[in-house]
Design a protein around this nucleic acid. Structure first.
Lengths: 233, 233
DNA sequence: CAAGCACTGTCCGCCAGGCGAACATCGATT
DNA sequence: AATCGATGTTCGCCTGGCGGACAGTGCTTG
């Protein structure tokens, strides 16, 4: 492996994790014994074995594999970056990303987390919560401001989410990053619960809500329906 | 979440893991307390939180993000499924996969593992081992037969790997699956060590070594060089 | 209808193994 | 050579996972 941040001494890890060195030492020795880390005597690094740990979540998602194909098709049709995400507390977590080749938009990939209130995917996922869950979210969430357009008022956010529920899609323009806007739709399970969201990410300025809705809403809903049907069968 | 295999009772998990139920119970309660699992009182399921665990390996790979872009470009150029993998013991582990839309080839995705000796990616990774490591591999590996074409003789495998070292690429035809062949090249770090491998997967019968070499070797090497250069800077 | 049985959840004593303060070692600088 | 900072190692403590035993529940059967 390239000797980058992958290789770290016990002391490096300890200071990064703000843990006693002896704790880190004990831990990396256990990781090594289990095959999750290796050492050349001085430095330690993770092995691909650790991938076995977290990916079980994705493999267990019944619609994950189908979603990858559906998003590939969607990207081919609309020629824009497409993503699927789920909600984890106040954050959205990307579970599929199909980047368009035109922009290398931020360093997002599978597992990346962003605050839910500023991303179209997040708005859709929040709109899928029950009223009780939504109130809990509004109590827990920080509603941090990222741009002048960021919605940070709980009352107005509640209104925006009601709008998403009514429309069946979310449009967000430059609330997280000045240069990005997006449109998202929910993916529902057989009982109608929102289990994930799909979106298309766009360059702000090139698109507005009306144009994006006309161009992307139907393809997004087709992809969502395709994913949903893969759960039923 | 959809009520699929994601939702399991303690007893289900226990029988699947062949563990005492009390052990499983203790464990899922801890997972729930830490936020990695949730429960409705009867069934338990993982939360997206667990993605934080294993993906640290990918994020730590210095060339991972660049590799995704490089493979997207490669797929666009050659219009075939492209992958990157690393070696973990006797298995190769996919770390990037860019499926072609023409085939939904097997259920491979990030983190999937296959025996190294029957896949072009694996041959390249084995060729990158030191002689000592290679002998250790040949001692550990099972060299299981998957098709009539599978190479299962350690001696002939050693010869094939020497050939890969000489050629700088690996061609494998129907040794894992009758309908799949592929061509792979190494990705090296600044010191020349093989840290990963790239390949193009093809339909067996449509391609032979000469044609595949003529069509794909140069694009593969360009992608590998692009990834390597991202490690140096 | 009661007894039996299979299945699931819960309790508790045991002990592996992580915790962290204290100690040892190494290398560099003055 | 002496000092000091950084890193590796040791050891007693105690959390928390282990698993056998026990209890509650629902369904079948004589």
């Amino acid at each position: 492996m390239g000797h980058g941040a992958t290789h770290q001494s016990v002391a490096d890890i300890a200071s990064a994790a703000m843990l006693p060195r002896s704790v880190v030492r004990r831990f990396v020795m256990t990781l090594s014994r289990l095959g999750f880390a290796k050492s050349d005597g001085k430095c330690y690094w993770l092995t691909p074995r650790v991938l076995k740990l977290g990916l079980s979540y994705l493999y267990a998602l019944p619609f994950w594999r189908q979603a990858q194909l559906a998003l590939e098709d969607l990207r081919a049709e609309v020629e824009q970056s497409c993503s699927m995400a789920v909600l984890d507390g106040t954050e959205l977590v990307y579970v599929v990303r199909v980047p368009s080749r035109r922009i290398l938009s931020m360093n997002l990939s599978i597992g990346s987390r962003l605050p839910a209130h500023v991303i179209s995917l997040g708005r859709v996922l929040l709109a899928g919560l029950t009223d009780i869950e939504l109130e809990q979210y509004l109590k827990d969430a920080e509603l941090k401001r990222f741009t002048p357009h960021t919605e940070t008022s709980p009352a107005r956010l509640r209104g925006a989410i009601a709008q998403v529920r009514a429309n069946g899609y979310a449009w967000i323009d430059a609330e997280f990053d000045e240069s990005i806007c997006g449109i998202a739709v929910p993916v529902r399970d057989s009982e109608g619960h929102v289990v994930a969201a799909l979106n298309v990410s766009l360059m702000a300025g090139e698109w507005n809500e009306k144009k994006a809705k006309a161009r992307f809403l139907a393809p997004l809903r087709r992809a969502a329906a395709q994913i949903r049907s893969s759960m039923l069968g």
